[in-house]
Design a protein around this nucleic acid. Structure first.
Lengths: 310, 310
DNA sequence: CTGAAAGCGCTTACAG
DNA sequence: CTGAAAGCGCTTACAG
């Protein structure tokens, strides 16, 4: 059939209300043009934007995205593993590295997978992320440059490599500056507001409480600031805070939160591109992509009041 | 084939790593077990939970959900309309009533659709929602019961029926109480933080500013409270606030926000049930389901300082 | 250049 | 009860 004829037929068909059946098409060409996004949750300030950015990038490349939340239980993972192995999606984007990416892809080891934000140790799963050591380093050095020496850390979920990298980054930054690393100054906030609030309370009960806190996420920093305010302390006059991620809650906080920007939408766009490249069998796709981060100075940190020479 | 034989074959097959091809199955049985959720966005405090609840309910009924965000542009709606008409999903859940639900379903008028939270006027699209007049009524009466007479309203996006119902609900509550409705006391916050902040500034510039504000959403109420705090006002000492929806940002605000709880996850679960019922051709499914709301008293409102008899 | 046929991997109605 | 065949609606390789 000539192109002209083909177009004429198409036009005639669509003007009659003909709609292609995408399921039949998928079966024939062995491609669904659908991606699966596996996210731990959507209840925090971090994930929602991810979802939007992923969907955005996917749609512009001709893909739909099915979302799966994994936090709830193991049953959920199984359900999504089935979608994968049953050929309903062409590839998968995963956020939570720790628990079972490799297990999920087990039934179909050839299935393209890209990990975002997090990364499994020693993994062959391609990833797009930031350098979380650097995130911590920027935060700690900023606080140090303002004269702070007693810098605490409220950490994220221990099963996330991103969180553990932020913690080790914090420690090596302190060492690099010649400061002591005190175990009592590191508290696990579990990545949640309540965990961070409890961590902050414990830090305030120390005989020598911190004058500055680096939190592994903005939402935890906001919760920790709230604890200080409830105790009548002034931020940043009495205590300085730096978060990480640059989410809306930190920006809206009072005072607005100094943070390390993580380019979430760029990461998502890049990850979708990479996944689609993998699906299409492109060559020369980088295994691990590291995106730049940037310190955002806002109102939540100030120079140490009584400057003490180190 | 006897059931025993069938099971034996199944077991043998799955132990050999056999995986059913769901695309082929879908083509044969004319069913995809996939739903489309059309949401305006996911950047606010309201939508993310919706997504989670919908996905949750859907998965437990054996459905996957594809998400589509409509805020970006008309092109997006077209892309999703194509998914619908091309038979890739069995049904659709829509949040934003105003713009084009009917148009979307145009190519396939038989396609099951359920509207959540919002509702088109005179529509034949089934819905699950709350009584937004009642939401406003509860808020206004609470403020009135605390002695407030000058009660302002910061409204949501004008194209949403939920928002316009909250506004008319506010006005009829005032009338029901015998208070005057002043036009200057109603400001459009466009459902966004920045819009609400601007609206609040305008309210504070009135010769007789309000002593209490009912905002059509918690996020707008938070933004409005921030404006007051920046001006050195005390909430609730100088001015009281009530929001609506009961989202996390209101709960985390300082002071924590009094609000009218909208049972979002119940609404989503009910909507998914209803949609699945429609897909399966069940009879007797109610057209419009209205879920209960509840006032949540928290720290952002207080009795009017100088009680003035009405 | 054009049209008929094969086949993607299932389910199900039907013949044996 | 069992097995072979038809068919869901496409795409594409192939014969004419």
């Amino acid at each position: 059939m000539a192109d002209g004829t083909r177009r004429a037929v198409r036009d005639a068909a669509s003007s009659c209300g003909y709609k292609i059946n995408l399921v039949a098409r998928s079966l024939r060409i062995q491609r669904t043009d659908t991606l699966l996004l596996l996210a731990p949750c959507v209840d925090d300030s971090f994930c929602p934007g991810i979802l939007r950015s992923v969907e955005d990038a996917a749609l512009s490349m001709g893909y739909s995205v099915i979302v799966g939340f994994t936090a709830k239980s193991e049953k959920y993972r199984e359900a999504y593993a089935e979608l994968l192995s049953a050929g309903r999606v062409d590839g998968m984007l995963v956020m939570d590295g720790g628990s079972g990416v490799e297990r999920l892809t087990g039934p179909r080891p050839d299935l393209p997978v890209v990990q975002i934000f997090d990364r499994i140790y020693e993994s062959h799963v391609p990833s797009v992320r930031v350098d979380d050591h650097l995130v911590a380093d920027l935060a700690v050095r900023q606080l140090a440059s303002m004269g702070h020496r007693r810098i605490a850390h409220i950490s994220g979920t221990p099963d996330s490599r991103a969180a553990s990298d932020r913690q080790t980054g914090y420690m090596s930054a302190l060492r690099g500056l010649g400061f002591a690393v005190e175990e009592a100054m590191v508290r696990n906030g579990h990545g949640r507001r309540d965990g961070a609030a409890e961590a902050m309370r414990q830090l305030l009960e120390l005989s020598q409480p911190p004058t500055a806190v680096f939190c592994a996420s903005d939402s935890m920093a906001c919760a920790a600031m709230d604890v200080c305010r409830d105790r009548g302390m002034h931020v940043p006059g009495d205590i300085s805070f730096i978060g990480a991620d640059n989410t809306a809650d930190g920006q809206n906080a009072y005072p607005s939160l100094t943070t390390v920007h993580v380019p979430r939408s760029d990461i998502c766009a890049r990850a979708v591109e990479k996944l689609v490249g993998l699906i299409r069998g492109q060559q020369g796709i980088p295994h691990d992509t590291v995106m730049p981060v940037e310190l955002m100075l806002r109102g939540s940190c100030a120079p140490l009041r009584k400057a003490v020479a180190a």
